[in-house]
């Protein structure tokens, strides 16, 4: 009985971290998606742009996310010009540092996924859009992006799940999201197994909901392939 009480109390405490976990995921994924789209378009439309983007992807995909978070959290404050800049009130906050690192990292992966999606857009569908007099913007909005996103969605779903889990690294820059709270409880109670099981269950539920949402979106965007 006492065991169940402990699990229940732990669960309640951990659930207090869910808003931060979800907030970090949603914020970084949203910012990452916008940046990824810009990177993918830059890569597709200019040669120097492509070189720049592949360098960006190389760096952010090739180094550990934890290192990137530490780099921004501990590193940014060392530069006087950063401390003097208007961004400092933001970069001083661990929440912003973690969000920034997660978004930059996500953008690197998502832009690669989107690039594959763009490459899979059938030429004929684009040509049909041109033939009916679509402007380039309309063509992008109504034909190219929906098809590219539809093609990229299964891979992007994996990336979203990875992002949910990656937010646990934010606990290492003092943020009390689900893993951070779990760690705090363990340091008081030394009951690592129970606490981490509860935390794991929360991540599972979050990712289950996310997987369902992606599946619904896939169905809404129409059949895969051509």
């Amino acid at each position: 009985m006492r065991e169940l009480d402990f699990l229940g109390a732990t669960m309640l405490q951990l659930l207090g971290g869910v808003p931060l976990t979800v907030g970090l995921t949603a914020g970084s994924v949203a910012a990452g998606a916008v940046l990824a789209l810009l990177l993918a378009l830059l890569r597709a439309n200019s040669r120097p742009g492509a070189a720049l983007v592949s360098a960006y992807v190389f760096v952010f995909r090739g180094t550990p996310l934890l290192l990137q978070i530490f780099f921004i959290y501990y590193g940014a404050g060392q530069f006087a010009f950063v401390r003097a800049s208007v961004l400092w009130p933001f970069l001083r906050e661990p929440w912003c540092c973690a969000l920034l690192a997660l978004a930059l990292n996500d953008a690197a992966y998502a832009s690669e996924i989107l690039r594959g999606g763009f490459a899979a857009v059938p030429k004929g569908a684009v040509e049909a859009g041109r033939a009916v007099g679509m402007t380039r913007l309309l063509l992008l909005r109504r034909v190219v992006l929906p098809l590219a996103i539809r093609q990229a969605l299964p891979a992007y779903g994996n990336e979203l799940i990875a992002m949910v889990k990656s937010t646990s690294l934010a606990s290492l820059v003092t943020l009390m999201e689900v893993t951070g709270i779990a760690y705090a409880i363990i340091s008081e109670t030394y009951r690592a197994i129970e606490v981490f099981l509860c935390a794991g269950a929360i991540y599972l539920v979050l990712n289950f909901a996310l997987t369902r949402a992606v599946a619904v979106l896939e169905a809404k965007l129409g059949p895969a392939g051509t």
Partner: peptide, 19 residues
């Protein structure tokens, strides 16, 4: 673009929008 909208084009490979 304006003039293309006044002409109907039918392609050999149909080119319907799959989505």
């Amino acid at each position: 673009e304006r003039v293309r909208a006044t002409l109907g084009f039918v392609f050999q490979s149909f080119n319907l929008w799959p989505h």
